[in-house]
Amino acid sequence: MFRKLHEPLTEAITIYVDGAPVAAEPGESVAAVLLRQKEAWSRTTPVTQSRRAPYCLMGVCFDCLAKVDGVASVQTCLTMVAPGMRIERQQGKRSLSA
């Protein structure tokens, strides 16, 4: 859906989206990385399991929620990438057993 204006800089880091390694740039948000993926979405809703992607990028819509390093319902537009970070798309209602 979106692309970088430039190739990730030399200090590019690797994060994992649903287990797959992807390149990211220090200082950018997790939501920005998600929007560059072929599957550019962040979660499915708890009500009808429909797909949602980052929408407002400024912390007011809560559609960019995903699991970040094991913590669910994190606003990925307010979360900056860090080396080795693990992002999991969030499916429907949260399950606590997982």
């Binding site: 859906m1 740039e25 797909r51 980052p54 990028l57």
Partner: peptide
């Protein structure tokens, strides 16, 4: 609510913060 709909402000933030534009 479909993925692919964003606000213009959101796109501008992507440009500022991540150097990212619609493909």
């Amino acid at each position: 609510t479909l993925p692919g709909v964003l606000t213009v402000g959101a796109a501008q933030i992507l440009l500022k913060n991540a150097g990212e534009i619609p493909e």
